[in-house]
């Protein structure tokens, strides 16, 4: 185990706090107002177009910190490895973890490694936990959301989920799909530091845009209206979703955030997004409205019709024809 840590893990993740290999990492943080989160990653396949489980494990956690209005400062990394897992693949995953952490300007300061007998895990499971320092003057929350606020997204939806599903199903056009897996800390911090109208943010991962918007409706008792024609979707993603019978609104994203923005600051927010590589296709896709009978998310379809967007439920099953 010591060899594994010294020869494979430390070189990829190198930083002073980790190199000590103490029982706990000692941190000097310039604030006592923190965010703290954790998430576990069990993705299959481990490597996919646009990323791998390692990149995902860093992005997922730093994005959760960022959308809560904080700047990530430290991560913990735990690996649960099935006996017999190829060391070359582990090196590749660790290299991506190190690279993504560097890009996100965050150190992996502590961690743990367990190997379990064959069959007790599916190749490799990863857990990351992260601490972020809350940005001064930023206070996000459902309670800030008001009627008239705009819903903004920083780009196309469904890319990650459809890439994974297509690779699992071995669809022929899988090479045209690429996960959007990315660390959003840079863009989100820039937005929060330079504008004042952002009320709430969330990354629409599992359950996609549909889940995030329904959480907003449920938690605020307000309703949300979005416009299908304004929601950016890549044609290949739409085609894959149509073919398998999935609603792209419910498909997971790993490099997107939804922001609820006051009407007067939408222009500033869009401008900042569109000047950033991860926000070039940012759009206002709808707004928060009064509730008529029960809080709902409604979509105006591309033909001008209306339907509701449900909180995703159950697992979707491939259909007959």
């Amino acid at each position: 185990m010591d060899d594994l840590i010294r020869q494979h893990i430390l070189p990829s993740l190198k930083n002073d706090a980790l190199d000590e290999l103490g029982d706990s990492a000692r941190l000097n943080v310039a604030s006592n107002s923190l965010c703290f989160t954790t998430d576990s990653y069990v993705v299959k396949p481990l490597f996919f177009n646009g990323g791998d489980i390692g990149k995902l494990a860093v992005c997922g956690t730093v994005n959760d910190l960022a959308v809560a209005g904080s700047k990530p400062v430290a991560l913990a990394l735990s690996l649960i490895i099935e006996d017999g897992f190829e060391i070359e693949l582990l090196d590749k995953i660790l290299a991506n973890i190190g690279e993504t952490a560097r890009q996100s300007n965050v150190d992996i300061v502590t961690g743990d490694t367990k190997t379990v007998e064959s069959g007790a895990a599916d190749r490799i499971f990863i857990n990351t936990a992260g601490i972020g320092v809350r940005l001064a003057g930023v206070d996000l929350g459902f309670d800030k959301i008001a009627v008239g606020d705009k819903i903004m997204i920083n780009g196309t939806i469904g890319d990650h989920g459809m890439t994974i599903i297509s690779q699992r199903e071995e669809l022929k056009f899988q090479s045209q799909l690429k996960s959007d897996c990315a660390s959003l800390t840079g863009l989100i911090c820039e937005l929060l530091e330079n504008t004042s109208g952002i009320k709430f943010m969330r990354d629409p991962t599992r359950g996609g845009l549909a889940a995030t918007l329904n959480e907003i409706a449920r938690s605020t008792a307000l309703s949300v209206e979005i416009r299908e024609t304004d929601i950016p979707v890549r044609p290949a993603v739409q085609a894959a979703a149509d073919m398998l019978g999935f609603d792209v609104l419910t498909i997971a994203n790993e490099g997107k955030f939804v922001a609820v923005v006051s009407p007067e600051s939408t222009d500033d927010c869009l401008k900042i997004c569109r000047n950033h590589p991860l926000g070039k296709e940012a759009k206002i896709i709808g707004e928060v409205v009064e509730t008529r009978d029960v809080p709902l998310v409604e979509i105006e379809t591309r033909i001008g019709g209306k339907r509701i967007v449900q909180m995703p439920y159950g697992r979707e099953l491939p259909r007959i024809c």
């Binding site: 019978g245 609603d247 979509i299 591309r302 033909i303 001008g304 019709g305 209306k306 339907r307």
Partner: peptide, 29 residues
Amino acid sequence: GTHTVSIFRNGIRSILPSNLKLLSGPGCP
């Protein structure tokens, strides 16, 4: 069944006059 889903997903019922009703028949296997 594919018509049924497309009709709902696109909100087609919502743009039809009130005296025109769509029935989903035995089309889902």
